[in-house]
């Protein structure tokens, strides 16, 4: 009896590990090619060519970069707090991967289908700030510390409006489960009725991932490289990978909340034969392209303007929109039905 249970248990574990590998493997390749895509896209937007030498169209460039970073020496600054210094990049990287556990790639294609999926995503994304603060503090460097302080304030501020935007979506969907949220968009994507919230959410994700025009924590022109200025080789690479994996994560969150997840735009013949996961990936790529587009075309925000945008514009706006959405749903009797015990 006992070894029967044990066998079952090992099978379960193996199955879970296999599922995780199926998600993480392509994700890491996607991260590698996102770095290449970023340099190429921004290159073309700025009338340059971008990296095009290593391999056909520069396709092997990410691997060359990865090899270079691995071959470099890991430097521990003399005054650094060694444990925290080494834990920070690991934490950033791990947090950018664990969130993928609840992302649905298609109908039922999800590692962990939990009831509070969206809250889990929100919780994990709000933890990303720890990697940055710990790195900034442990480096024992002024530039790194300033970058970390900026990042902490920025991420906490934009989380508030992000939370309120998510409440808008939840009011329309009536569930915290990501599969249910996507199913609720079968008739109409939430991007249409909640268009202003879609824009607010996208801008907040830019701030949350420390991307241009909100990349003050890195601020090359003033802070050298911000919180990871003291990092080299693999520990730097982990920050780098974490940042890009977070970009993909935030894009997929946008797709799930507003662009109908794996659903095809309209339910007609040539579009609905394309499998769901493919739609999901196409939509993520579109959102990622906008990420890069924004970076190529907008100048960096000033710090006080960044705070003003978060607290004085997005927060009241999304708060009012919650009231409006709730009122509209109540008056038109469209509030999703909730079964009470």
């Amino acid at each position: 009896m006992l070894d029967f249970i044990m066998q079952d248990w090992i099978l379960d574990l193996g199955w879970i590990v296999a599922k995780i590998m199926v998600v993480i493997g392509p994700l890491l390749i996607a991260v590698a090619y996102l770095t290449l895509a970023e340099r190429r896209v921004i290159g073309f937007m700025q009338l340059r060519k971008g990296p095009n030498v290593v391999g056909p169209f520069g396709l092997f460039q990410p691997f060359a970069d990865a090899l270079k970073l691995m071959a470099k020496e890991t430097i521990l600054p003399a005054g650094a707090n060694k444990v925290v210094f080494m834990v920070a990049p690991m934490l950033t990287f791990i947090l950018s991967l664990v969130a993928w556990a609840v992302i649905p790639f298609g109908e039922g294609l999800v590692i962990a289908n939990i009831n509070v999926g969206i809250l889990y995503l929100f919780a994990i994304s709000s933890l990303g700030v720890y990697g940055v603060i710990m790195a900034g503090w442990a480096s024992n460097s002024k530039y790194a510390f300033l970058g970390a302080l900026r990042s902490a304030a920025q991420m906490v501020s934009y989380e508030v409006s992000m939370g309120l935007v998510i409440i808008n979506v939840l009011l329309c969907a009536g569930s915290l489960n990501l599969l249910d949220i996507v199913e609720a968009q079968r008739e109409m994507w939430f991007a249409l009725p909640l268009l202003p919230m879609f824009v607010v959410f996208f801008i907040s994700t830019l701030a949350e991932t420390n991307r241009a025009p909100f990349d003050l924590p890195e601020g090359e022109s003033e802070l050298v490289a911000g919180y990871f200025v003291e990092y080299s080789s693999m520990s730097f690479a982990l920050f780098f990978l974490g940042e890009y994996a977070n970009m993909i994560l935030m894009s997929s969150m946008t797709v799930i909340l507003f662009l109908g997840g794996w659903l095809s735009p309209i339910d007609i013949w040539p579009l609905n034969v394309i499998p769901g996961p493919l739609w999901f990936i196409i939509k993520i790529m579109l959102v990622l392209f906008v990420f890069l587009w924004v970076r190529a075309t907008t100048p960096r925000y000033r710090y006080d303007q960044l705070m003003r945008l978060g607290w004085k514009i997005f927060l009241p706006f999304s708060l009012i929109y919650v009231v409006l959405t709730a009122g509209f749903l109540l008056i038109t009797d469209r509030l999703p039905a909730v079964v009470l015990g």
Partner: peptide, 13 residues
């Protein structure tokens, strides 16, 4: 999740 969002994600920061 609320514990993580509120206490870890905001207060402890």
């Amino acid at each position: 999740m609320l514990l993580v969002v509120v206490y870890v994600g905001a207060v402890a920061v």
